[in-house]
Simulated assay, not measured.
Amino acid sequence: MKTLEERLDQAEAMIQTTSFRENKGLGNEVGYYIFDYPPEQELYIRNWVEYIRQKNESSGDDYRIIVFDLYDIVIDILIQKGYLEKCYQFEKTKGFERVSKSISNMLKITSSDGLIVNYIKDHITEKSVVFITGIGKCYPILRSHIVLNNLHQVIDQVPVVLFYPGKYDGQELVLFGEIKDDNYYRAFKLVD
């Protein structure tokens, strides 16, 4: 079994290949990938993602790694709409489950025209590699299969890599190694 460092090295090598970035060799399927990792390695993964982004930014590569932290996007949207403080008050009076549902509805989480999907779509270019992080920080407001399914409907020209704090066996997602997602999602495992 490979170490996390070996898997990350393999992932970096894959991302640098032209065939990966052009989605070649995937049976004409859009390149959606999941890189699963032990949740206790979250800070290590965050540092690695930032390192790879900066390395790409300062290189002469013909592609750009763009990192989208879902938690940061949600907070930014709540601030822009003036809802963040209202969420704090709403949680005090109605509870977290109710505020979570309200945030999901406001963000149109289940729609391919949702605010998060549109945010990502508006910030990518033709030569992007999209890294999605922060899914663990957003639980239970966001579920990874919903985000990926909605993105899959509108972003098909660039590869997308979800960094997932849990386990993915090619069909089933288990967040934090404990919370089983009842929905099937088909994405390629970036590396084993």
Results as ranks from 00 to 15, higher is better:
L175D: 02
N118W: 08
I15V: 15
F20R: 02
V30F: 07
T3E: 11
I109A: 08
G82F: 11
E172M: 13
K189G: 05
F20K: 00
L4D: 06
D36Q: 05
Q10M: 14
I34M: 05
S100F: 09
N105D: 15
N149F: 08
G114H: 04
Q41N: 15
E57I: 10
V191Y: 02
I73H: 00
S100I: 03
K121F: 12
I65F: 07
K137Q: 13
G166I: 05
T18Y: 08
I52C: 03
L4C: 07
C138K: 00
Q54K: 15
E85P: 02
Q16M: 13
Y184A: 04
L84G: 01
Y32K: 01
I77Q: 10
I45V: 08
K167C: 09
D192L: 09
Q54M: 13
I109F: 09
E50T: 12
S58D: 10
I77Y: 13
Y83F: 14
S112R: 06
L190N: 00
F68H: 01
L115Y: 12
S128W: 08
K92M: 12
K86I: 10
N105H: 11
A187V: 04
D169E: 08
N150C: 12
W48A: 00
L151H: 02
G166D: 05
N118F: 07
V129W: 00
G60T: 12
Q153E: 15
Q41S: 15
N183G: 03
E5P: 03
Y184D: 05
I65M: 07
T18G: 03
K108C: 11
V49H: 02
L8E: 01
N23W: 00
G177S: 11
T110S: 13
K55C: 08
I75D: 02
N150G: 04
Q89E: 14
L151M: 09
T125H: 11
K121C: 06
S104F: 06
L26D: 01
G95P: 02
E57L: 14
D181H: 11
S104T: 10
E57H: 11
